[in-house]
Amino acid sequence: MEISTKNSNLGIINISPEVIEVITSIAVTETPGVHSLQNNFASGNIEKLGKKFRGRGVKVDLKDDEVILSIYVALKEGVNVHKVAENIQSNVNQTLRTMLEQQVKEINVHIVNIIK
């Protein structure tokens, strides 16, 4: 499934979920307080089967041209968890709007671990 953005005389632009995953991954790892993205159960099993999973820690669901993100992240010790999660949501939303002109319906941040 892809997001389609129509442009009057020029045609249609299709954006694949993999592009959204990569852009989201970069935005998350650039957020202060984030240690790393973490695999969720599905991505770990895909990699065990030999297929490279590019959006490690990021799951993209597309429904009716709306984007729903689930982000699995490990934070650094001593940070305000709630504030860092809000900053992740803000950074991802702003980055996707700037780079893809795409609105995001939901950005769900799952704190998987705290790393010393």
Score class of each variant (00 low, 15 high):
21 E>S: 13
21 E>M: 10
22 V>Q: 11
22 V>N: 10
23 I>S: 04
23 I>Y: 04
23 I>C: 04
23 I>W: 04
24 T>R: 06
24 T>E: 06
25 S>M: 10
25 S>Y: 02
26 I>T: 10
26 I>H: 04
26 I>F: 08
26 I>Q: 04
26 I>E: 05
27 A>F: 03
28 V>L: 03
28 V>N: 04
28 V>A: 03
29 T>C: 09
29 T>R: 13
30 E>Q: 13
31 T>C: 11
31 T>K: 02
31 T>W: 02
31 T>V: 09
33 G>E: 02
34 V>G: 06
34 V>H: 02
34 V>C: 04
35 H>F: 14
36 S>D: 13
36 S>N: 12
36 S>A: 12
37 L>V: 07
37 L>R: 09
38 Q>Y: 00
38 Q>I: 00
39 N>T: 03
39 N>E: 13
39 N>I: 00
40 N>H: 14
40 N>T: 01
41 F>I: 14
41 F>G: 01
41 F>E: 14
41 F>P: 00
42 A>P: 00
43 S>V: 06
43 S>R: 02
44 G>K: 14
44 G>A: 05
44 G>H: 08
44 G>Q: 13
45 N>A: 14
45 N>F: 13
45 N>E: 15
45 N>G: 00
46 I>C: 07
46 I>G: 05
46 I>L: 10
46 I>R: 05
47 E>T: 13
47 E>S: 12
47 E>A: 07
47 E>L: 01
49 L>F: 11
49 L>R: 11
49 L>M: 15
49 L>C: 07
49 L>Y: 06
50 G>H: 08
50 G>V: 07
50 G>E: 08
50 G>R: 08
51 K>N: 10
51 K>W: 05
51 K>C: 00
51 K>Y: 12
51 K>I: 15
52 K>E: 13
52 K>F: 09
52 K>C: 00
52 K>Q: 11
53 F>S: 11
53 F>D: 11
53 F>Y: 15
53 F>T: 01
53 F>G: 01
54 R>A: 14
54 R>V: 15
54 R>S: 12
55 G>S: 07
55 G>W: 06
56 R>C: 05
57 G>R: 05
57 G>W: 05
57 G>D: 07
58 V>K: 08
